[in-house]
Structure formats: C-alpha cells, structure tokens
Amino acid sequence: MTLSVSTGQAVDLRVQSVGEVLDRVERSLQVRLLPDTVVRKRRSVGAKTDRDTWVRVERRLLDKITDQGWNGTECAARLDGIIQPEWHGCVVWRDADGLVMWRADETELLPGTPVGTAVLSEAPELPNAWWEALNTSLDALAAQDTRRIATPDTVTITQALITESIRGVFSGDFDTTVERWVPAHADLNWANMTAPTFSLFDWEDWGNAPLGLDSASLWASSLAVPALADRVRHERRSDFESRDGKLMTLFVCSKILGPYAHPEDPRLKPAQRTAEQVIKELQAS
C-alpha cells in the first residue's frame, strides 16, 4: 500500500512512500531515476538519472511558498561567477488536496560528493583550492543583484525575525539593526557543498539576507570541530569582522542556544563563548 504524501500536514520523506511522486517526475521529465542512487531527506528526494543528470524533488506546503515563488534553483542559474551545477529544467505541480506543491529540478551531476552532513563531527580534508573556490563563489554571490528575499528553513528572513531571534536568547545593550543586505545562499552547510572539487548546490532558499549570514551559518555547522570553525572564520574574516557579520554570528548562535537546544550538542559551549565575546564587541562599537 502506498502512503499518501499529499496531506497538508508536515511529513518526513525519509519514511513516507514517494513511489507515485517519482513516477510522475519520470513521466514529466521523460527520464528514468536510478533506484540505487536515491537520497531521501526530510522534505526532498534526489536521484541520478539515466542521462547522467540529477533530479531533486521537493515537497512544500502552500503556506511556505512566498509571493516570490520557490524557484530558487532556476533563478540561481543566471548568477555569474559561482561554481554550481548547471540547471536543465523542471516540473512543478499542485497536489489534489490543494495544500501541497511539488517541484522537481534537473541539473548536471555534482563534480564530487557532499563534504558531509549539515553539522560535522570531524574535519574534512579540503585543499587550498577548495577554500579559494568557496571564497570566490561567496564573494561573487554577494555582488549580484536580486529582488529575491532569502528563506532559510523556508522562513523569510526579516529585520524583525533577526531581532526577535537574538533578543530571545541574549541580553545586552546593543543595536540589532542590519546595515547591509546582500544575496546569500541561505542554507550554507557541509551537506550542500562538494569535495574535493568545490560546487555549491541546493539553491531553493537563496535571496537577499544580512551580510555574513552564509559565513556564520557555515561556521555554526563547524563548531564541533574547533580547527574547522577557526578556518571558516579565517577564510571569511571580512564578514565576521563587520558589524552585520557579528549580528549574524549571534543569529546562528541563537538557534544553537535557544529553546530547542540539545543538552549534548558539542556546539553549545563554543557558541556561548563566541556570543559573549561578540556582544562585548557590539557594545563597544
């Protein structure tokens, strides 16, 4: 029996049956998905195809789709100077119950495997050329122009959200107003980049965000490995030294230290130490 994933409630595609969805994608894109390559995540499923491309299928509740749509991967195809998989095409449809939409994007295959999980527990071996490619891509991205607004975790990022997140966890007399907004990937972690050849993928949530969001997000994903976190801060030091970068550091720390903090999360202590230091710097500026 095939379980329905059209319900308007939250589901986990790692455990739900998605056979009918994948059959529809194959028919629409006129491609065959290779069963032994399927990768299942909470709200997306990906697989290699018989024409050496990759298809990523995402399920999203209608109320999680903003006025700008949810064609981030398609829109990212026009960005210059960024190392990412080439986009080929897509199919989008609305489920019969009207509460859910599905989207399948076909891109070229990644040049390597993902560096790791979203949060790493041990340091990856990354050549200097990899870090250079990361810096080149992030700097090129920040120099682009877009009307899109970033939606990290499918939530539109706003000044109000930033202030609420920071104030909900940290006290102190400092201004939380962001000065500069630039295009950001908005889901930068070790699961969305490849190695040993660098490529940045999963562009669903990109758009304008406070300067330093991507750098702070990658740093937060590295905190369980102190040397790696230090390397991220070194490579992206111009972001971290900026006032907005300090605010973004507090923003990502608030997610680690907030109401959903896990008592055994190895990132708790380094996040707390860094947050305390950043607050002192903001108060002194």
Rank of each mutant, 00 (worst) to 15 (best):
D244K: 01
W87H: 13
E281W: 04
D95Q: 13
Q159L: 12
L62W: 03
D244R: 01
A104G: 06
S121N: 10
P127Y: 01
T177R: 14
E164R: 15
L13K: 06
R24N: 00
P270Q: 08
E281G: 01
A227Q: 14
W181G: 07
L29S: 03
I157Q: 12
F198C: 09
L223D: 01
Q16F: 10
E179R: 09
E20G: 03
E132A: 10
E86N: 10
T151D: 07
T163N: 12
H234A: 15
L268P: 04
V155L: 14
D52I: 00
V178N: 10
K41T: 01
V115Q: 02
G72A: 12
V252F: 05
D265W: 10
L79C: 05
T136I: 06
T197H: 15
S28Q: 13
E86H: 09
G46S: 15
D139C: 05
R59L: 00
D12Q: 06
Q272A: 15
D36G: 02
E281I: 02
T117H: 13
E86A: 14
S44W: 08
D63M: 04
P124K: 09
A96Y: 11
A150R: 03
A191G: 10
D95V: 03
S165I: 08
L257A: 08
V91T: 15
S217K: 12
D139M: 06
E58W: 02
E86C: 04
S44L: 08
V278G: 04
L228M: 14
T7K: 11
I83M: 12
W181L: 07
L188W: 02
I65F: 10
I162G: 12
F240Q: 07
T197L: 15
A271C: 07
K246Y: 04
W93T: 07
G8S: 04
F170N: 01
Y260G: 00
V91R: 08
I83H: 11
V21C: 01
R243I: 09
V91D: 14
P124Y: 09
T49S: 10
W190A: 05
L213Y: 15
V21E: 00
P266K: 11
Q16R: 12
L268R: 15
G116A: 03
A77C: 08
G89T: 02
V252T: 14
L62K: 11
S165P: 01
M1C: 13
A76F: 07
W131F: 09
R148C: 06
L223V: 06
V92L: 13
M248P: 00
P183C: 05
L268C: 06
V278D: 00
E125M: 08
L99R: 11
A186V: 04
G69D: 11
L268G: 06
T177V: 11
P111S: 05
T249V: 04
V155C: 11
V45M: 08
D173F: 02
